[in-house]
Amino acid sequence: MDAQPSVIIRTARPWTQGRGYALLAAVPCLFLAVLFVWPLLRVVLRSVLEPRPGIGNYTKIMFSGPYVAILLNTLEVAAIVTGVCLLIAYPVAALTARMNGLRLRLMTALIVGSLWTSAVIRSYAWMILFQRYGIVNDALVALGIADAPVRILQTTTAVVIGMVHILLPFMLLPLIASMRRIDPNLLRAGRILGANPVRLFLGVYFPLSLPGVHAGTVLVFISSLGFFITPALLGGGRMMMAAMLIEQQANIYLDWPIASAVATVLLAITLVLYIAYGRIARVDVTRSLR
């Protein structure tokens, strides 16, 4: 009753190429078990075991301090960013999907190039643009929209603009991909049958672009939840999101149990969305990153 029977069974089964390949997964799985799964488990365990076993950290998060407000703010900002991204990306993607040749390549280079630029550097650029006597304020005063320079930095508006700038490619790429798959003959058929442009859009084009909308929306929303650099630099102090809260609790207050509990909540929200998304859309999430 020890290891021997299993050895016999294994040699009795015929060798297949597939099984040999599957064994290769052992190394990366071990690596991820030690450096990804165990660390995550540890965060979850720490949130219920420290400083003493129980759900003390969670009741503290629920009923005291700014924690719930910050988590809600995170969800709110993520929703706004996702909405703004969709509003900007949808028409741009629809136009890009019809391009070809040089124009399409330039557009792709612009979108992918944006994906490659450092988030720290881009947030720094927005800090320059948004400062009290910066170019945006100059423009606002010159156009008569504001009487005097207004505070843009440290507001939700600044954070949303900075985040939209970083996340637009994640909305655009799945949208463009699904829009390029729409058969132009379907639109032609609709037009011949007498549909006006609005009807054509609502009845044919939009429903067919929905896979891209789903993929982009979930991708942008999930990514927004964990944002740190942009809200920290552009929202600075006045505006707080979950990742900043976790970093602050761990690095400044050294309150690792609370940091772990907030992280666990964030992890749970992300995982639920990730799994739900996999069920609904069944699109390879990573496709859009390539």
Binding site: L40, A250, S260, A263, L266, T270
Partner: peptide, 9 residues
Amino acid sequence: LPHIIIAIG
């Protein structure tokens, strides 16, 4: 996943 969660783990 947000990098912060992986980082504190």
